[in-house]
Simulated assay, not measured.
Amino acid sequence: MDSRFLGIPEIVDVPSVAVVVDVMRACTVAAWAFAQGAEKIVLAESLEDALALKGRHPDWVALKDGPPAPGFDAVNSPGLLRSVDLTGRTVVQKTTAGTVGALAVKEASLVLCAGFVVAEATARLLRTRECASVTFVVTGEDGRADEDLACAQYIAGRAVEAGTDADEFLRRAAASRAAAELTEGVREGAHPEDVALCLELDRFPFAMVAAPEDSLMVLRPCAVPAIPV
Rank of each mutant, 00 (worst) to 15 (best):
P58Y: 07
E120I: 00
T28I: 10
V117G: 02
I41E: 03
F206P: 10
P225Q: 05
L51W: 06
A104F: 00
V42G: 05
D194L: 14
A44N: 07
G115Q: 10
R203Q: 12
G101S: 12
V229Q: 15
G37D: 02
V186W: 04
L197Y: 02
L182W: 09
L197R: 13
V118F: 01
P58W: 03
V12W: 00
D85V: 02
T90P: 09
A173D: 09
G37M: 05
P78R: 06
I8C: 06
T96Q: 13
M24T: 06
F5N: 10
E130V: 06
I41P: 06
V137A: 11
A121L: 06
R124F: 01
T183Y: 09
C113P: 00
Y154W: 11
A104T: 01
T87C: 07
A18F: 00
C113I: 14
E107A: 14
L149D: 15
M208S: 09
K54R: 11
L63R: 02
I8Y: 07
E141Q: 14
S16A: 15
A156I: 04
V186H: 11
R127P: 04
E130C: 11
E184G: 05
F136I: 07
V92L: 11
V42D: 04
L199C: 08
E120S: 14
V23K: 04
I11Y: 02
Q153I: 09
A35R: 10
G55M: 07
L6P: 05
G189K: 07
G98A: 07
P58H: 07
L53Y: 10
A152G: 14
D49H: 15
E184Q: 15
A97H: 14
V42P: 00
K94Q: 14
F169M: 03
C198I: 08
E130N: 12
E181S: 13
E181M: 15
E120T: 12
P221K: 15
A173F: 04
L201F: 08
V195E: 11
R203F: 00
D49F: 00
R158F: 06
P9K: 09
G189I: 03
L182M: 12
V105W: 02
A69C: 12
S133L: 03
M1W: 08
A179E: 11
S109C: 10
L103Y: 05
V23C: 06
V42S: 03
A44C: 14
P67G: 01
S3P: 00
R127I: 08
G66W: 00
G71R: 00
A226H: 03
A50C: 09
D73C: 10
A108E: 04
R89T: 04
L201P: 01
T164W: 13
R124N: 12
A196M: 14
A33H: 01
A166D: 13
V21G: 05
M208C: 12
A33P: 09
E200C: 08
V91A: 08
P225N: 04
V21N: 02
R172H: 08
R203A: 13
R25G: 11
A190W: 05
P9C: 04
G88Y: 00
D202S: 02
A31S: 15
L47Q: 09
D65Y: 03
V186E: 12
R177L: 11
E10M: 01
P58N: 11
